[in-house]
Design a protein around this nucleic acid. Sequence first.
DNA 1: TTATATGCAAAAGCTTTGCATGGGT
DNA 2: ACCCATGCAAAGCTTTTGCATATAA
Lengths: 145, 145
Amino acid sequence: MDTATRDRWLEHASQRMTAAGLRAGAARTAVVETLAREGQCLLTAAEIADRLRGASAGSIATVYRVVDELSELGLLHRYDGRDGVARFEIADPDHHHHHVVDEATGAVEPFADDELERAIAGVAARLGYELTGHDVVLRGRRRGG
Amino acid sequence: MDTATRDRWLEHASQRMTAAGLRAGAARTAVVETLAREGQCLLTAAEIADRLRGASAGSIATVYRVVDELSELGLLHRYDGRDGVARFEIADPDHHHHHVVDEATGAVEPFADDELERAIAGVAARLGYELTGHDVVLRGRRRGG
DNA sequence: TTATATGCAAAAGCTTTGCATGGGT
DNA sequence: ACCCATGCAAAGCTTTTGCATATAA
């Protein structure tokens, strides 16, 4: 993820948070900046807290509170994997994507696919739903190398 | 889900379990039959245990052990929602489907879509993955009524 | 008979909450 | 000044694990 995208998201997040009446506290700001820095990469609350501790502070409780707020505002995507740990990453409308998990290594790779998105939109229309979100997770093994 | 489908799955499950060296204990059998009876419907471990208690027994620990075994054998699909509770349902290759969650009511509706499946297969091929599974969850609000 | 299945209870996570304190506006 | 944000500790959950007993094969 490039700097421009990250900065754009930071700007957007700042506006949304202000509009929502959220103050720019030290911990909240640090969580937001950490998520922006990691970009298109899923982080657990514990991983975010670890990165904050490197700087100054960050209690796990606050991290959970902040990621909940941000998710509520649509600023984060949340993924709940099979290991019972929630993971978060910034939601950038210009970089919409999903993930494929390599079951051999556990590695997570992002991907985007227009045809998949069209198919999902088609399903929603057919079923009569107005979509607010959707998750796609592929699991498999990488062929070749 | 019709009786024939349920019976077919039960037969299939029985064979796979025997082949895997699993014995037909009371609790395991009861869990399998409960899942078959519910068919195309997601159940939590606690919900399964509740249904067992109505009959005779069923400890939550055993339920977790059984659904893990069955998932490992590919006999169950597992969904991890945002509430941190895993849900299970029988995996019938002839009734492959996904789910759409109505955010207003929390209702979960199954659906199947060939175009969506084709898109997913296409993505996997493009990325060079041999898929072992995939999840799609749509979230939205039902239009009209 | 022998290894597996089961239940109970305890432990192990992750996540949330209460409360007192610190900090933004 | 006022109210929100934060940290700590404790509580709440789901899920896993240890161990003794019961049971399928």
